[in-house]
């Protein structure tokens, strides 16, 4: 009977929480032709959604529009160890982290009035591009995150040490808050500025998106070390040699990987300068 077989499959998938098993599954999907649930035999919608683990306890976070991120007000589980950035003792999630966690039922996002922000609005925030992310970057993030990689936004430190200022004036408070807001997104300027973001995108179609660390149970936000690689998102066309070398020079020493997202399908590429030996 097909049903017991499917039940067994679900049980195995659900129990297989180890990243290695997920890695095998994702690798299998990536190598071969697309895997499709059969919508003519299975109960398609419910069985497709059952592949995503439902977490019984969800953290809660409040969306902060001016920061372009959410402050975690009630944290559950251990996700905070490798997700989100810490500022002044508070944990913040950016939009791709929110999307990833919300899709898995691990996060409930609230507005400042305490109302739940639904998936539609979360997707709108990601796809809108105003908060330092894009739909394609979200797909790449999700792909690596599911494989257990530790992913941070490029240029955004995991933690920031900050000395307390005891004499607080309005001006200094404003400065501190501005610094804090900027440090949630990108060093050297707020990427929430649409014009600036568009400029960045227009300058080249290749921009560093994420700093990626290998799956590592000993990862610490306070001393993350150098990332395993910096991930650059490509959009329209393959990069030219000049573009490749420009970006490579910018990251002397840290490997680069390139990522192309085609309607949700994520492909990764490496490009290395080669010097073939002259054979005898």
């Amino acid at each position: 009977m097909p049903k017991p077989t499917r039940a067994v499959d679900h049980r195995r998938r659900r129990s297989g929480r180890a990243p290695a098993i997920a890695a095998v599954a994702v690798a299998a999907e990536d190598d071969g032709e697309e895997h499709h649930l059969n919508p003519f035999l299975d109960a398609a919608p419910s069985s497709s959604s059952s592949r995503v683990q439902f977490r019984k306890v969800a953290s809660r976070a409040v969306w902060l529009e001016e920061a372009g991120a959410a402050e975690v007000v009630d944290s559950k589980g251990k996700l905070w160890l490798t997700t989100g950035v810490n500022r002044d003792g508070k944990l913040y999630y950016n939009v791709e982290e929110i999307g990833f966690l919300a899709e898995r039922g691990a996060l409930v996002l609230l507005d400042y009035e305490g109302e739940t922000i639904g998936m539609e609005e979360i997707y709108g925030k990601i796809a809108g591009g105003k908060y330092g992310c894009s739909w394609d970057a979200f797909q790449a993030y999700k792909h690596l995150k599911l494989l257990g990689y530790i992913i941070g936004r490029y240029g955004v430190p995991w933690t920031v040490k900050r000395s307390h200022t005891y004499s607080v004036t309005d001006a200094s408070t404003s400065v501190v808050e501005t610094d804090q807001i900027q440090s949630l997104n990108r060093v050297g300027g707020a990427s929430n500025d649409i014009t600036k973001l568009l400029k960045e995108m227009c300058i080249d179609d290749m921009h560093p998106s994420f700093e990626v660390y290998l799956p590592n149970s000993k990862f610490k936000k306070t001393s993350p070390g150098d990332p395993s690689f910096v991930l650059c998102l490509l959009s329209n066309k393959p990069p030219s040699r000049e573009e490749l070398e420009t970006v490579e020079n910018k990251f002397e020493g840290i490997p680069l990987k390139f990522c192309h997202v085609d309607n949700g399908r994520v492909s990764f590429l490496s490009s290395n300068k080669a010097a073939l030996p002259s054979l005898p």
């Binding site: 539609e120 709108g124 739909w135 997202v261």
Partner: peptide
């Protein structure tokens, strides 16, 4: 909803 540069929609 359009999903941004290069993409389609959600």
């Amino acid at each position: 909803v359009l999903s941004g540069p290069g993409g389609g929609a959600i």
